[in-house]
Design a protein around this nucleic acid. Structure first.
Length: 823
RNA sequence: GCCCGGAUGGCGGAAUUGGUAGACGCAAGGGACUUAAAAUCCCUCGGUCGCAAGGCUGUGCCGGUUCGAGCCCGGCUCCGGGCACCA
């Protein structure tokens, strides 16, 4: 063993050994308990950043810990390799997205290996490899057969900068989630996945995902947005048509005095009378021309226009003017809303603005609302009035009763509504998975036959940066023959949203070399579900919802047998420096390469695990990194000094030679217990490391180290420290383990067990309180009887001073911990 | 507006079931070693009073429950995140 700790030498040595031995390669083994540990795979953007370092360090600790605990651990890594940055880079550098992507992958793979992460590299995959995306095309076709993938004309979110469509989930505050451009609305023929068919199951299963953070589940539930209500049909005056609305407030039906339709409502123009046509079309144009940011702004004014038509309130028979209103969403419910201005704030504002009728139907307890003097809608619970036979009912009870009544009368029906929309997956981009469809003038949209798969993404494409998809301009790709009739036909040139690839990559890791189909069912069954998934909170809705959906689809298609992909989810916090997220523009970026070069991967890993618990944001501190390096150097030196005293000595197993040795051994076994608990149940890496540091401090303070009778305890202590640190600083631990004379690798050495007998204290520190305030501490033998402890507590000088001769009213005794004397 | 989190020394954070608040680390101050510095090692380190023993005070604020509250309950304040015209 070298006298000084030189990380680069140690790390290169062990990385070479792991690579040569394929130390982390796994195969399915029914006789062993499996553990599937997965971190979200990276987009190959060029180089890894500190967020990756943290994410993958956390994952690697768990993987290595579980391995030492005897699990058969699947820990794979790959590349989320399709996507727009590659295309943009290609335009800029006049190169090809594939070249850019694969160069990045090669570089980043090297970086990950340099971190000493224990992946089974034989399972590596890149989603842009045809070996991967061909199977996705097959899945698409199966979904198409079942109507799970379909095409329809729709108004879509269009990012003018990316020149492509975005799913609802990918629009943040009316802007593109990727480039922040203001998203526009555009009518396009688009491919969709019918995720709404799974809305109920996706929602219901959130109840069973007890290993997920509550806030992620809440976000998903909100996104799915289930609500109970009624669909109610309103006849249009003097016409055969009817308007159906969705409402959750059927208890306010008697107060509905007008009707609001979305400007995009299919009946909008049909209901418009000739003398209103000019205003109505102007209004529709105005709404469509307003971008989403302004349309959803806080101060956006509610506006509308009268169509000239009327409908009838089905229960009161009152005539209700039909308006178009800019706040009514075409996508939600039926795109039509019965307006109850007295009990809905938006309708209230609208009615005031256009001088429409207000009718109170819910009265609050002990108050009488007057439409003439109301300044806001009353939206809370109350008692029904002006509502026929339902007068006097509580509004919550009336909801049920009125829903039943409407069903009996054939005026409406109870319904459940969801906010979740189908997942639009069409992207007008090149660097993605081609959608395997052919359009024929005679046969229509025809799926590419499975035998003709894969539809390979052509390589010879020019990247000009001009608008539209490069694929659509590539004649040899577009021109093809119809698989049904053989006549000339055109290929679909849309590619799939890259979230499709990441929706099932965790399944492909189970059998990445399988050529018989997307998944080898047997191997997937062995590994699935992912026992622990680790990644950023930013994917709480997008990726994590899509992946859950896809898993259920693949289950229903017979590919897998699990309902949920991820049993436990850990969302790690961001890496912060100087109070802000690391970014080039803020100039607070820490480069992992420089960090590793200076301190080594082990220090980088140790610090990122020690500085904060994983789910919290991590405040980067250069001094903190220095401290972690100091700790490793100190332990290295300690080992170097102690080796001569423990050479040829066996680790302690029985009773130590003296009190000091017994105390050290107790610390060792208590630390093993603590670290095991922290890693196994809580993922509290920071406290596990802190406990190990305390143990190192205790070994350092232990004397005399050179006494032969202390050798066994000293060796046991050092061996334990090394094993406890192995998941955190694997190279460092491997080197010290070897220095301790171990022929067997530390990876196969197993996790240390603690001896409960060795953790037992021979004396206890009892805290003595008087009236709940700390007044003294006494040390007693473990087996001291309660009465004796109380007596000793009472006898303490300082305690006496505070008891001041009074007779205790009560003495509380918490065994082994505290005595509280109440006077 | 609604729904989640969170608030503990100069800083990052501990306190696992209601039982010694501040583990561990960083920073700071003092000392040793050194011609000097770096590195390393030792000591101090919530505030305050005290020579000391020790006292008082202290976990965002106000109140409650309890022998005992950072932790439980009620009411606030501030910060962070998510959703946001969802009928």
């Amino acid at each position: 063993m070298e006298e000084r700790y030189v990380p680069s030498a140690v790390e290169e040595k062990w990385q070479a050994i792991w690579e040569r031995n394929k130390s982390f390669k796994v195969t399915e083994d029914e006789t062993r308990r499996k553990y599937y540990l997965l971190e979200m795979f990276p987009y190959p953007s060029g180089r890894i950043h500190m967020g990756h370092v943290r994410n993958y360090s956390i994952g690697d600790v768990v993987a290595r810990f579980k391995r030492m605990r005897g699990f058969n651990v699947l820990h794979p890594m790959g590349w989320d390799a399709f996507g727009m940055p590659a295309e943009n880079a290609a335009i800029q550098n006049k190169s090809h997205p594939a070249a850019w992507t694969y160069e990045n992958i090669d570089y980043m793979r090297g970086q990950l290996k340099r971190m000493g992460l224990s992946y089974d590299w034989d399972r590596e995959l890149a989603t842009c490899d045809v070996e991967y995306y061909q199977w996705e095309q097959q899945i698409f076709l199966r979904m198409y057969e079942r109507g799970m993938a379909y095409k329809r004309n729709s108004s879509v979110n269009w990012c003018p900068k990316c020149e492509t469509v975005l799913a609802n989930e990918q629009v943040e505050d009316g802007a593109c989630w990727r480039c922040d451009s203001v998203v526009q609305q555009k009518e396009l023929e688009q491919w969709f996945f019918r995720i709404t068919d799974y809305a109920e199951e996706l929602l219901a299963c959130t109840e069973q995902l007890s290993g997920w953070p509550e806030r992620v589940l809440t976000m998903q539930r909100n996104w799915i947005g289930k609500s109970f209500g009624c669909e109610i049909t309103f006849p249009v005056v003097d016409r055969a048509e009817t308007i159906t609305v969705f409402t959750t407030r059927q208890d306010t039906l008697w107060g509905a005095t007008f009707m609001s339709l979305a400007p995009e409502h299919p009946m909008a123009l049909a209901l418009t009378t000739p003398d209103n046509l000019a205003q109505v079309t102007a209004f529709i144009d105005k709404v469509k021309g307003t971008d989403k940011i302004r349309r959803t702004a806080d101060d956006f004014e509610k506006e509308g226009v009268f169509t000239g038509s009327w409908c009838l309130n089905p229960v009161t028979g009152q005539r209700m003017p039909i308006y178009l209103a800019n706040f009514v969403l075409t996508d939600y419910g039926t795109g039509a809303v019965m307006a109850v201005p007295t009990h809905d704030q938006r309708d209230f504002e609208f009615a005031r603005k256009y001088g429409l009728t207000l009718q109170v139907v819910i009265q609050p307890e002990g108050e009488t609302l007057d439409p003439a003097t109301m300044t806001a809608a009353f939206t809370a619970e109350g008692v029904l009035v002006n509502s026929g036979q339902f007068d006097g009912m509580q509004s919550s009870a009336a909801k049920e009763a009125i829903a039943d009544y409407l069903e009996q009368q054939g005026l409406g029906k109870k319904t459940v509504n969801y906010r979740l929309r189908d997942w639009g997956i069409s992207r007008q981009r090149y660097w993605g998975n081609p959608i395997p469809i052919i359009y024929c003038d005679s046969c229509g949209a025809v799926p590419v036959p499975v035998k003709d798969l894969p539809v390979v993404l052509p390589k010879d494409v020019a990247f000009t940066g001009e608008g539209g998809s490069p694929l659509a301009r590539l004649e040899p790709f577009v021109k093809t023959a119809c698989p049904v009739c053989g006549k000339p036909a055109r290929r679909e040139t849309d590619t799939m949203d890259t979230f499709v690839e990441s929706s099932w990559y965790f399944l492909r890791y189970c059998c990445p070399d399988f050529t018989g189909g997307p998944l080898d069912k047997k191997r997937a069954e062995y590994w699935m579900s992912v026992d622990q998934y680790i990644g950023g909170i930013e994917h709480a809705v997008l990726h994590l919802l899509y992946a859950r959906f896809f898993t259920k689809v693949l289950r229903d298609l017979g590919y897998v047998n699990v309902d949920e992909p991820f049993t436990n989810l850990l969302t790690q916090g961001m890496v912060i420096k100087d109070g802000a997220k690391m970014s080039k523009s803020k100039g607070n970026v820490v480069d992992p390469n420089a960090l590793i070069e200076r301190y080594g991967a082990d220090t980088a890993r140790l610090f990122s695990l020690f500085a904060a618990p994983p789910e919290k944001d991590l405040d980067w501190s250069d001094q903190g990194v220095e401290g972690s390096f100091r700790f490793l150097s100190r332990l290295w030196k300690l080992m170097y000094e102690c080796l001569p005293f423990i050479a040829g000595v066996n680790a302690a197993s029985g009773e130590p030679a003296n009190a000091e040795a017994r105390a050290l051994r107790r610390t060792v076994h208590k630390t093993i217990r603590k670290v095991t608990g922290d890693l196994d149940e809580r993922f509290h890496f920071n406290t596990a490391i802190a406990a190990t540091m305390e143990l190192v401090n205790a070994i350092q303070a232990f004397t005399p180290k050179n006494a032969p009778e202390n050798g066994p305890v000293l060796r046991e202590a050092l061996e334990s420290v090394v094993r406890l640190l192995a998941p955190f600083v694997p190279h460092f631990a491997a080197e010290l383990w070897e220095a301790l004379g171990k022929a067997e690798s530390i990876e196969s050495a197993g996790w240390p067990d603690f001896d409960p007998a060795a953790t037992v204290d021979d004396e206890l520190l009892i805290v003595v309180q008087v009236n709940g305030k700390l007044r003294g501490r006494i040390t007693v033998a473990v087996d001291t009887a309660e009465d004796k402890v109380k007596a000793l507590a009472m006898a303490d000088d300082n305690v006496q001073a505070f008891v001041a001769g009074k007779t205790p009213k009560k003495v509380v005794y918490v065994p082994g911990k505290l005595v509280n004397i109440v006077v």
